[in-house]
Design a protein around this nucleic acid. Sequence first.
RNA 1: GCCGGGAUGGCGGAAUUGGUAGACGCAGCGGACUCAAAAUCCGCCGCAGCAAUGUGUGGGGGUUCGAGUCCCCCUCCCGGCACCA
Length: 917
Amino acid sequence: MQQQYPFREIEQQAQQDWATKQTFAASETSDKPKYYCLSMFPYPSGKLHMGHVRNYTIGDVLTRYHRMKGFNVLQPMGWDAFGLPAENAAIQNNVPPAKWTRDNIAYMRSQLQSLGFAIDWSREIATCDPSYYKWNQWFFLRMLEKGIAYKKTQVVNWDPVDQTVLANEQVIDGRGWRTGALVEKREIPGYYLNITKYAQELLDDLDKLPGWPDRVKTMQANWIGKSVGVRFAFTHDIADNGGLIDDGKLWVFTTRADTIMGVTFCAVAAEHPLATLAAKSNPALAVFVEKCKHGSVMEADMATMEKEGMDTGLTVTHPLTGEQVPVWVGNYVLMTYGEGAVMAVPAHDMRDFEFAKKYGLPISQVIELTKAQKELRDKRLGFIADAIRMGAHIAAGTVFDYLKDMDQESLENEYLAVSSFSSKEVWREWYGNNGFCINSGKYNNLNYEDAIDAIAADLSAKGLGDKQINWRLRDWGVSRQRYWGCPIPIIHCESCGDVPVPDEQLPVVLPEDCVPDGSGNPLNKRADFLNCSCPKCGKPAKRETDTMDTFVDSSWYYARYACPDNDKAMVDQRTNHWMPVDQYIGGIEHAILHLLYSRFWTKAMRDIGLVNYDEPFAHLLTQGMVLNHIFSRRTDKGGIEYFAPEEVELLHDDSGKTTGAICLADGRPVDFQGMGTMSKSKRNGVDPQSLIEQYGADTARFFMMFAAPPEQTLEWSDAGVEGSHRFLRRVWNFGYALSSEAKVELPAKISGGLANARREIHSTLKQANYDLERQQFNTVASAAMKMLNALEKVQKDAEDGWQAIASEGFSILLRMLSPIAPHIAESLWKELGYGNDILTATWPEPLETALVQDEVELVIQVNGKLRGSMTVARTLEKSALEKLALEQSCVKKYLEDGASVRKIIVVPNKLINVVVG
RNA sequence: GCCGGGAUGGCGGAAUUGGUAGACGCAGCGGACUCAAAAUCCGCCGCAGCAAUGUGUGGGGGUUCGAGUCCCCCUCCCGGCACCA
């Protein structure tokens, strides 16, 4: 008789229980070790999407697992509540962003609660609450005092659609990260945070984060972009009436100072003063310079742009040789990096090489290969020579595989190219290698490091240069010309200038009843906000109307969860108690921006004396995206039409292979091969709410964990969801059946089928525990299924005393399942009388006595190939095993035609390999 | 171009240290139950072959008694960075 699996009642009951008992409220006074498990807080966009469900399920599994393993766990939740979408919604619906945001929070909170997450809701925060953003403002003023925050006017990235400034990190391929609009350059004043001051520490401390994925650390290191080299100057006496060029020096930066004696020209960016000067008297150059400037902003296909340049006619003096060096304008030189000018060594730099080749500039070799590099080259030469001599086709799989399809003529050309170090025709990657100096006067025979040291010392002695470090990272501009954000606490006074708002006047409260209309910042029209008096002189003054980048809000929220009720301080000792976050979980899309800003902010808080830790997140798990099929079809008009999954039926052949898909409405085929992130435009989204209503939270959670390992992309599958639901229903039915069986004690001696079943359960548990520790939850879900399979077999076989084995096994299964599907586990735990609250149960550990077996099956191999197996006593000695193996017919067969046994390899309890020959 | 990560049945994915490749699930096929269908249960399920057997983890070499796993080369895919001097 099948029972219904009443997931709605079970889940509601459990959730009510947890809420009433405040089960998940975390306390600082526990004597257990602390474990702070944090998922990235959501932006309250309206409703949860599947990415949220996956993110928070992973966090909840870790939370509940660690609770049962004896940790004092904190799992809080909050809302990244400021930001542009609220303003856009306001423009569309004529609703104040505050109301829109708070309504969304209320709905999404109820969704999170219906998923049964073990969250301490008493610590909930929303960044749009004055009690939170007050401390943004307070800390901003501290950073201003320390010089970490400062004001400057700079060319900024202006998003013409959102009418706001973007940080460099928010510009992707020249377009706004949110709007995709082409970014324009504008000059406006704004506040900056001196993150570059922390560049070295941010780079070095990546080594202190063994719990972070390598790829995230690599991305951050690339982003910080440390470059060690020499900054030096070419001298000149070019005069300039405008005063732009008055120091007689053309500064450049290079990482290859060892090649300085090979400089044959210099290249400057189009925006460089020397280019501007030369363009004044050279109309053709002026045209070229203008073209470069426009190109760099407007051209989307910049990456494929050909190297172009033009001679300025100017020359500068080489600081070491005294030679005159021509100055060119090159479109490959960036004004925003280094000095906006480079020395060019075509013999040893690929870009310079191509440029020199195109414009016929001299190429001068100054580096010779090292011995090892020469040997490799000679080996290659010998190889080619052999091939030419013998007219042989080169065998595949060699080091020089690329030669294999070449004809004689190509091989001969290749020989010439390889034997000449610096061909004037073709760039070879080894031209750019480090080696030792030649044709370099006093620097001859020095290696890379020594040459750079000697050259830097000589330049330094002349006052013309020194070693220097360049960073790709720029300071963080935090001013936004936006309404729905944290006001920057500054007052502009005509006589006193920019005056910080005194601490006692904080927070500067954002008026919440504004409805933006899409034209600029509505704060500029709010007299009650705008007009104030100067804190210094008392005269009428104007408030700053810029608000802070929302990345500010998310840079320290994790520290506030420890003390959300403190209205006297930003953080307190409880922050030092809980921090750092032991496990942080979120999307890979935040690998650079949010995580780098948070690391910077932590170090700033430390330096201002607020916290005692250096890094905010000890372990980081970046969960993969949730994908679903994209069904599409070309329309008659040439556009693309998308179909929701429920509008489509998949077709397959007898073997189960999918062969096509048709639209249910018209029966015509649609393209079924695409997979992509769930999105409205592709019509492939699945609403978590309908999933919860149809199958329950436990099914949703179980499927999310089962379908893929946490870090990988997850492919949505309705059939997979049903499979997960089917499994939970079987768990329910088994538990229900077991609860009506007689209670039987475990016998002293367990043997036969019952021992096998018990061993299966305990060895599955052993594997599951290993997988939990390495955060591979999909195989933990598999293990739960495997256990149920074993238990159902025990039930079916019904050997004497099976109930005892089943009861023990089921108690293990429920505990193992409880982090993933907590409601059903809790309900059945009570039903079967294992105890009141599964959350206080101890985590199951496999029993060694259940794992041992008297007889083991040994695999028999002959010459490494599987030939058979035999069942032997576990204690049998090696010599006896060997003897036994040779008697097996599957081995004898290979000894018949006079072959002899050369060797026998025994892997205890696993296999035996007989080597014959 | 540079850096990082991948490639295993029809599909999602397993396989601690090199030791029975394909766990677990989905899809499919066959059967039971049913007037029928759904649900459920039982069985089969890498490929080739009637079978014995052969073959098989992107491709090519190598190390080893034994390679999905280690080494070398190549191809393709994904992610990040990029005229960064």
